[in-house]
Design a protein around this nucleic acid. Structure first.
Lengths: 335, 335
DNA sequence: TTGAAAGCGCTAACAC
DNA sequence: GTGTTAGCGCTTTCAA
C-alpha cells in the first residue's frame, strides 16, 4: 500500500494525499475527508524511508552510553527517551562500552544512519587528551552533539551537567562540620565528572586546613558489580593501619560497600562512621541505615538537555553550557 | 556527497560504486582500489534512507520495554543491544510505560519506522484477556515479534522465557525442606511470568500438603521504588497477627524489603526468618546478609532470543517457544 | 485547491 | 567485470 494506491482509490493525486498526510492547510475539507476515509479503510501508513529520503531526517536521535545497565545511566536513558518521544522523536540506543574505539564506531554508525542529533549520556565520553575528543568535534560538524554530565567547548556541542565540584565540596564540608576530619574519598571513575568530584573534595579539605593524605584518596579499579572486591579494598587499607571515620563515595554502590566495610570492621553507622554516596539512586533505600547521598538531579538534567536539543534543531540559539546545582539528601549514614 | 559524485570522480558507474560499497565479488581489484581511494578521500558514507528505500530495511530492531530503568530490564536491554550490534543490527528503544495504550502506539510507531523485528522485553506485554493481546498478533503480521519472558501462541511470534513456574516451585520446596512452612508469597506484578511464579509457589505448597492461606499471598500495589511502603505492607500484616517465617518474593527489591521487615520486627535472618528473591540482580549484594535469589539466566535468554530472531530474519524455521531453566543461588538469607 | 512531474540516493536486473 | 536504467515511496515546486 503506497501513496499511489491511496491516490488512485481516492481519485486524487499523490500530491493531495501527501498534503492530507502532512496536515497542509491547502486542501479542501471535502477532499481531506475523502482521502482520510481511504487511508483509514486500508490502514495505510507512509513509508518512513521514502519520507526520510526526501526530508533527509527521520526524526531520530542517537543516544550513546557506555553501559545502559548502569543504574544511573539506565534512569537517565529512561528520562531521555520519554522526553524525546514527547517531542515526536525516536531514539536509537548504542551501548558503546568503555573503550574509545567502541565510541568512535558507534558515533560513525549513528551519523551514517542520519540521526538528527546525538546525546552522549555520561561523562565517560570525554578524555583528558584533547586528541581523543576529536571524534566528538568531528561528529558535531554533522549534527548537534549533546553532552550529559560533561563539559566541552566546541561548535555545535552542548553541555548540560550537574555541578559535581560544588556538590562534593558541600558534602565534604558537611562531614567536616559534623566532626569527622579523617575522610576517605572512594571513587572508581576518572571521567570528567569524576575529576570534578575529586577536585571538590580536595578543595574543601585544603580550605579547611586539613593536610591532604594521598592514602585517603582511593581509586577502586575492579568491576563495578563486585561489591566484595570494594569492601576488600577498604579492609586492606584498614589492615595497613590507615584510619578514617568517614567515606565520601563517587557513587552509591561504592557507598554501600563503605557501609558494609564499616559494619564489618565493628563501627556503628552513623555513630562512629559516616558515609555519603552519589546519585541518590534506588540503592539508598537498600542500605541500613538509609544512605545519605548527593542528588545530581538527573531528570532535571535530562529535561534541560532535551529542551536545548529541540531548540537547536529548530534553529534557535541555545546556551552551550548549562550547569545545574546538586543537593545533599541527608539520611541515616551521617549524623 | 552522493554515489553519483563518487562514481564521477572515480570514473566508473554508480553501479560499480554500489558494488564496492556492498562488497560484491564482481569487481576487479583494481577498480575496487580506485573507488575506495575516492570514497576515503572524501569521507563519503552512503545515505541510509536511500538504501532503506530500495532494500526496505534499515537493519534495525525495535525494543519495547515498559520502563528501561527497571534494574532487571536495563540489564536485558544491554544484552540485547550488544548482541544485536554483533549481528550488524541497530536497535530503537521504546519505553512504553505500563498502559496498554502506550504499548499499542509504540508498536505502531515501530512498524511505521519499518523495523525488521520487534522485541517485547518483559512479561508486562501479555494480558489475561486475549483481545488485549491482539496488538501483538497484528504486529506479527508485518514483522517477527519476539517475546522475552512471556509465552504466546501466534504465527510469527517467538517466545523465549525462563521457567518461572519451576523456579518458584523449587525455591518453595527448598524453604519447606529447611523447616519453614509458613511462607508468604510477596509479589507486585500480575504479568504472565508473575502468574507463572505464583502458580509454582501454589503447586509446591499444595503438593506438600500445606493448606493455602490466602492471607499469605500478598500483592503489593505501590510504587516499585518505594521500599518503605513495601516494608509497611508487611508490617501491617504482622500487626494483624498474620505470622510467617519465610518470604518468597517475585523480585529482589521486594525481597530486600522483606529482609528489612524481618530485621525491624526482631527476627534474625536467616536463623528465624528466610527470604528468597528473584532475578539475582546486583541488589543481592546490597543486602546484609546477602540475598538468596533465583537466577533466571537473563543473558542466556537474550542470547537465545537474538539467535532465534536472526534465524527468522534469514528465513530459517525456528522454534516458536524456548523455555530455559532458572537456578536458585543460595546465599545468606536462607539456611 | 489541485495535479503533473522532478527529484531524493541507492540497488539490482539486464545488457554488453 | 562494468555500465545503463528503472524503480523504491514520498515531498515539493510549478502550473493550471
Amino acid at each position: 500500500m503506497t501513496i499511489y494506491d491511496i491516490s488512485k482509490k481516492a481519485g486524487v493525486s499523490t500530491a493531495t494525499v501527501s498534503r492530507v498526510l502532512n496536515g497542509s492547510i491547502h486542501v479542501s475539507e471535502a477532499t481531506r475527508q475523502k482521502v482520510m476515509a481511504v487511508i483509514d479503510k486500508y490502514g495505510y501508513t507512509p513509508n518512513a524511508f521514502a519520507r526520510g529520503l526526501g526530508l533527509n531526517s527521520m526524526k531520530t536521535i542517537g543516544i550513546m552510553c557506555a553501559d545502559s545497565s548502569d543504574i544511573y545511566l539506565a534512569k537517565a536513558i529512561y528520562y531521555l527517551e520519554q522526553k524525546l518521544r514527547a517531542n515526536c522523536y525516536d531514539s536509537i540506543l548504542c551501548c558503546t562500552g568503555y573503550e574509545l574505539s567502541g565510541k568512535k564506531s558507534a558515533m560513525n554508525l549513528l551519523i551514517t544512519k542520519k540521526v538528527d542529533g546525538i546525546i552522549l549520556a555520561g561523562s565517560h565520553f570525554l578524555y583528558q587528551d584533547d586528541r581523543d575528543n576529536q571524534y566528538i568535534v568531528d561528529a558535531a560538524k554533522q549534527v548537534p552533539v549533546m553532552l550529559m554530565n560533561a563539559l566541552m567547548d566546541a561548535p555545535n556541542v552542548y553541555s548540560i551537567t550537574s555541578d559535581d565540584y560544588s556538590s562534593t565540596y558541600e558534602a565534604t564540608k558537611y562531614l567536616l562540620a559534623s566532626g569527622i576530619s579523617d575522610i576517605l574519598y572512594f571513587y572508581n571513575a576518572v571521567s570528567y565528572s569524576g575529576q570534578r568530584k575529586l577536585a571538590g573534595f580536595r578543595e574543601a579539605m585544603e580550605e579547611s586546613g586539613f593536610p591532604l593524605d594521598s592514602r585517603l584518596i582511593q581509586y577502586y579499579s575492579g568491576s563495578p558489580e563486585d561489591m566484595d572486591a570494594m569492601v576488600e579494598h577498604l579492609t586492606r587499607l584498614h589492615m595497613k593501619g590507615i584510619t578514617f571515620h568517614g567515606i565520601l563515595a563517587s557513587d552509591d554502590l561504592l557507598a554501600l560497600a563503605a557501609v558494609k566495610y564499616a559494619k564489618q570492621t565493628g563501627y556503628s553507622v552513623p555513630e562512629d562512621f559516616s558515609v555519603i554516596g552519589y546519585n541518590n539512586s534506588i540503592l539508598v533505600k537498600c542500605c541500613d541505615p538509609e544512605l545519605t547521598s548527593i542528588d545530581n538531579k538527573s531528570e532535571k538534567i535530562c529535561q534541560h538537555l532535551i529542551n536545548t536539543l529541540m531548540g537547536v534543531l529548530c534553529g534557535t540559539e541555545m546556551p552551550g553550557k548549562t550547569i545545574l546545582a546538586g543537593e545533599l539528601i541527608r539520611r541515616g549514614t551521617t549524623r
